[in-house]
Design a binder for these strands. Structure first.
Length: 491
RNA sequence: CGGGAUGUAGCGCAGUCCGGUAGCGUACCUCGUUCGGGACGAGGGGGUCGCAGGUUCAAAUCCUGUCAUCCCGACCA
């Protein structure tokens, strides 16, 4: 019963849930809506963190850390911001427990009520801008380019492992600039970083675009995003970068003196990606045998499974493998030699496929005789037997090849599942029968967007940055439109 | 917060209608044979049946209450 996964085509949700659990990525915790990320899942997140962190630092950003708790009054300073987050905040009201009078347990001590409640951060703009006020006096203090790796809490009604949990891990960048142009450029620079990361590390092609008014971040002037397509035809917002204008500077009174000594409000940006990316990674590449990891993010890139008839053969295999493993490691390849005799080879094959290890090497008596090794690729499930002496080079090239191959496969999938339509009937039919991204003209009004959402569950995912202008008519209202936008059902 | 369902071994479930020795699969432990795609056989351990009351000679089963979780909506990275 515990063997195998449900088929993707039968029940995508069940497949996803089982995969996340069986590949040792994460599980639901006993705490409502929260998730336990298991060591294997976390090690993938660490690889993602490391790659992103380097990209941020290479572009001049530094890490810092701000408080988990936000005084309630901070949250109310920016009107749109509080509107957007008020409905999903965890609130701390007391700071002490005491024993029940009847000795049956403990209770919140009513005497320990806080003067001002504390909000567990759903995002950190408010607490950070309240701090920036003290950091910024002159143009010489700008820009501030800060990122923090943290957990945030959003009390979601319905949760799904990685995709939507009540608590999640993320990075959130918060920058302050002297000019609007510089802040806009920062917003777009981060969007490029996110897109590069998604495509080159995760192997997930993404659309780059700007959100419509109704999908915009609470408190932002513009929200840019990367949108990925999952194998079930639904879209996943994989990262956002917000141009905040002077909204938070205004709310927290953050002003600077320019070169002429004139006071002006600071321009801001904020941006983030979360553990949701892991959900996207899983849904973009995995198959019915389990996870398929891009080599650049795989904690184990190559696993070696020895095959022996009796224990004495281990020695010969060790002797053979020792220099090979050394050569692979010196090429920077992460190799795991699974020597356990508590599990059989077949079991291990299935296990590492479930966990998405890109390349598996198997070596047994037959190979010892022929000086060969069996090489199996996770993404294509192809196997071949090759000479062992050049295996390090073969593996290195194959890792490269897999990295590109899974991106190409995902890109082709997205291209097949992106449809341009000119009528609402086609729109509904494609959405129903095929799913995926649908490009269509839209009149630009929130009212139309809302009506389409209510009727079809599809929303405008984004307005593509590089979409060509053309004359057209809104598929819903028939009113004039200058650009097609991307619709989809979304996670 | 509306609609629906479920709480029984680590996990997945049956048993509940019709009250009477706590069951199956899997995982786990031992021994043997196996080991190039999730092995097989034999034996073994593991449960206050979500919690609290009630009815009864007797409750996983019936009644009342309560808590929790999941699914479908609304909300969302």
């Amino acid at each position: 019963m515990s063997k195998g996964l449900p088929k993707r085509a039968d029940d995508y949700s069940a497949w996803y849930n089982e995969l996340v659990k069986k590949a040792d990525l994460a599980e639901n915790s006993a705490v409502r809506g929260c998730m336990v990320i298991k060591p294997y899942g976390y090690s993938i997140w660490e690889k993602m963190q490391a790659a992103l962190d380097k990209m941020f630092k290479d572009t001049g950003h530094s890490n810092a850390y701000f408080p988990l708790f936000i005084p309630k009054s901070y949250m109310s300073r920016e009107a749109d911001h509080v509107d957007g987050f008020a409905k999903e905040c965890a609130v701390v009201t007391h700071y002490r427990l005491k024993n029940n009078a009847d000795g049956s347990g403990i209770e919140v001590d009513p005497a320990a009520k806080l003067e001002e409640e504390l909000i567990v951060r759903p995002t950190s703009e408010t607490v950070i801008w309240n701090t920036y006020k003290n950091w910024i006096q002159s143009y010489r203090d700008l820009p501030i380019l800060v990122n923090q790796w943290a957990n945030v809490v959003r009390w979601e009604m319905r949760t799904r492992l990685f995709l939507r949990t009540a608590e999640f891990l993320w990075q959130e960048g918060h920058t302050a600039h002297a000019t609007k142009e510089e802040a806009v450029e920062e917003t777009l620079k981060i969007l490029r970083i996110y897109a590069t990361f998604a495509e080159q590390f995760m192997g997930v092609p993404v659309l780059r675009g700007v959100k419509t008014e109704s999908e915009r971040f609470a408190g932002a002037v513009d929200t840019y995003c990367i949108e990925a397509l999952m194998q079930d035809g639904k879209a996943l917002q994989a990262g956002t970068s917000h141009f905040l204008g002077q909204n938070f500077a205004k709310a927290f009174d953050v002003k600077f003196a320019d070169k002429e000594g004139k006071l002006d409000l600071v321009w801001g940006t904020s941006w983030g990606v979360s553990t949701r990316l892991l959900g996207g990674l899983i849904m973009a590449h995995s198959d019915d045998n389990g996870l398929v990891l891009p080599p650049k993010l795989a904690p184990i890139q190559v696993v070696i499974v020895p095959i022996v008839k009796d224990k004495s053969q281990y020695e010969m295999i060790d002797e053979k493998l020792d220099p090979i493993i050394g050569k692979m490691k010196s090429r920077g390849i992460s190799v795991h030699y699974d020597k356990r005799d508590t599990h059989k080879p077949g079991w291990k094959f299935a296990e590492y496929e479930l966990k998405g290890v890109p390349i598996r090497l198997a070596i047994g008596p037959r190979d010892l005789e022929n000086n060969t090794v069996e090489v199996a690729r996770r993404d294509t499930l192809e196997k071949e037997t090759i000479g062992i002496d050049t295996i390090d080079q073969v593996v290195e090239e194959m890792l490269e090849e897999i990295q590109h191959s899974i991106f190409d496969k995902a890109l082709k999938f997205r291209e097949r599942n992106t449809t341009e339509v000119d009528s609402y009937d086609d729109f509904k039919q494609i959405l129903e029968e095929k799913g995926g991204f649908i490009k269509a003209h839209w009149d630009g009004t929130p009212e139309t967007e809302d009506l389409i959402k209510n009727e079809t569950k599809a929303t405008v995912r984004c307005i593509l940055l590089d979409e060509k202008e053309e004359d057209g008519k809104c598929v819903y209202s028939g009113r004039p439109s200058r650009k097609k936008v991307v619709f989809a059902k979304a996670y």
